[in-house]
Design a protein around this nucleic acid. Structure first.
Lengths: 353, 353
DNA sequence: CTGAAAGCGCTTACAG
DNA sequence: CTGAAAGCGCTTACAG
């Protein structure tokens, strides 16, 4: 069962255990001839290292940090919850994690936070990033210390992180459009869109995916220009209320950004029929709105899966293992009937994708 | 970081390492007084056993078996694929798995297969079950040998297995109904349903969930009685073709069962508009049909997650650990835009829910 | 450049 | 009922 051990390899190669270990872990200081013999033996025996044993021996500790935007944003609170709950689970496997709060949307704040990480002796960090070359220097410094870096939910400058974990926002927008289109049964309609800001990459991308699908497959639907909300519930509330009252021809609402509480409140105060309503991220209030029938569809990026993948990836990176193949993450569609039982939607074992 | 070890516990309790171990693992033969002292020390120190070290030491091997229905059923082929790919991953952790083929839908065949397992020295088995008291005897025998048993996808008599992993089919049917209803934009319509057979519990349940939602929230939609297909693509093909030609008032198709290839073929041969179409299980042909626009929605039970959970649960059971909390599995909704990149939809780490 | 040895946190005989 | 010791497969000083 257990396959050959390093001992078997060393024997087969005719070298000592220590030497076999050296070539396997590229510790250097080994004669070419020995390297060849060991490599050969590994090949022949099909040796595969026992990671559990290795970690036990090494007393490997994984010191991880997550840089997460602060604020009352329900989505990031959910992310926080997933991190803590997984960290809890993983404390038995010698991983410790620290969640570092960063001012949302501020390049400067992020720059400084990354800088502060540098002295801290972390092994790996996951960062909810921004696209700005101002971040390159602190990221490079961090990396120079041997810290592994990945982007989470929102990417960092690509050359300065080992991987990115997040959904494709164009796909998320397309998915929203598909369901919105469906809901019109090939009838005509007008869709009011909302966005936080259009210079933030992800909102623009979602909107674009949305437009692409509507244009291609639902040509009878008109998309009204997005109302910009700064993701502020109060702005959403006013805008939605106003749209609801002043434009009875609207057949759908689509908010690509946050601040949904305001949108939901505006809808719930309206009597009679309402527009078909799609928004992003399953959090407590969107969950409740789905159940109450105030909205129809939530497109969710599965933060539980994202967090789980972040841990898996970071550990693999730290162990210098091949990183497991990470398929693109696809957004999940929720209606009121397939809602997860647990409001936190906990990663159980999480194990599940 | 690493917390207290059993050594610390033994010291604190004033007993030997071996004795501490005995009470922790309930090996018996320990004085009440010692037990109390150890329990107390564990409590005080917050000791938590290092599973990796335990397994390393024990040379624990997990011999698992999966009993899966044979046949060309694409869904079960997908299940098989997930099992093999995960098994591959887990071979490094000393788990071996054998997939045992069983004739589909046959209580006798299942009875015999379970019987044959009894001599085989497995530690845990996952069985795609049937509800029949004929299975109780062989299950009881198997269990008497210390084999852990769980139901997978379709349950066994509940008293004779430790857990069941599968979706709630009523929920699956409700979800299908929600999307079907949505697609009518509060217009009227008529839905042709298809089912393999109505005595098979899961089909009846899906249909019921479907009916419940339509009746409650989409009263203008009429549900036609299901055409029974035995999940045979040829039957589906003929029935769908016939319905398409003879009843132009149909606005939707819903197949609760398998045999979708036939349904898809019938639709793809039809010119002009077609009914809105919802079916179950994402497999190669339903995936392609979604992409091609022959169907609109696939409700999927996430076999990757199910298989992953089966492994996790079986190992926990075998280790006599508390089984991780398993939230009810919710069906996933796929449209052509949020389809997984990998046709096999591999459980990466799978880790994800 | 190479080896022998201790130790990671546990389990499993074995001997009292 | 209790303990001392070997061993699981590795890594890490330490000594050549």
């Amino acid at each position: 069962m257990s396959g050959p051990t390093l001992n078997d390899v060393a024997d087969a190669a005719g070298v000592s255990y220590a030497t076999a270990d050296r070539v396997l872990n590229n510790r250097g200081n080994v004669a070419q001839k020995s390297i060849a013999k060991v490599r050969d033996a590994v090949e022949r025996l099909g040796y595969v290292r026992n990671v559990a044993a290795a970690n036990l021996s090494r007393k490997r500790v994984y010191r991880l940090a997550f840089l997460i935007p602060t604020g009352s944003n329900a989505f990031f609170n959910r992310i926080r919850g997933h991190i803590t709950s997984l960290a809890d689970h993983l404390s038995a496997e010698n991983v410790t994690v620290e969640i570092v709060d960063v001012s949302a949307f501020s390049v400067e704040a992020l720059h400084d936070s990354i800088g502060q990480l540098t002295g801290r002796d972390f092994d790996g960090v996951a960062i909810v990033g921004l696209q700005s070359d101002q971040l390159e220097q602190p990221l490079a410094d961090l990396r120079a210390r041997g810290v592994h870096i990945i982007g989470l939910v929102s990417d960092l400058p690509a050359a300065f992180r080992s991987a990115y974990i997040g959904i494709d926002n164009i796909v998320a927008g397309r998915t929203a459009a598909r369901l919105t289109g469906m809901s019109h049964a090939s009838g005509a309609g007008a869709i009011q869109t909302f966005a936080g800001a259009l210079d933030a990459g992800d909102h623009a991308e979602r909107l674009q995916g949305f437009r692409d699908v509507i244009a291609a497959d639902f040509p009878r639907l008109e998309i009204l220009d997005p109302i910009l909300t700064k993701d502020d519930p109060a702005v959403l509330y006013d805008a939605a209320r106003n749209a609801l009252h002043s434009d009875p021809t609207l057949t759908a609402f689509y908010n690509v950004g946050a601040g949904n509480k305001g949108l939901i409140n505006a809808i719930s105060e309206t009597k009679g029929t309402r527009p078909f309503c799609v928004l992003h991220e399953l959090v407590e209030h969107s969950h409740m709105a789905l159940v109450a029938g105030h909205i129809d569809v939530v497109i969710d990026q599965r933060p539980d899966v994202e967090v789980l993948r972040a841990f898996t990836l970071l550990r693999a990176l730290i162990d210098q293992r091949d990183t497991p193949p990470m398929l693109p993450l696809m957004p999940a569609i929720f209606v009121q009937d397939n809602l997860p039982a647990d409001p936190m939607n906990n990663p159980m074992k999480a194990q599940d994708t």
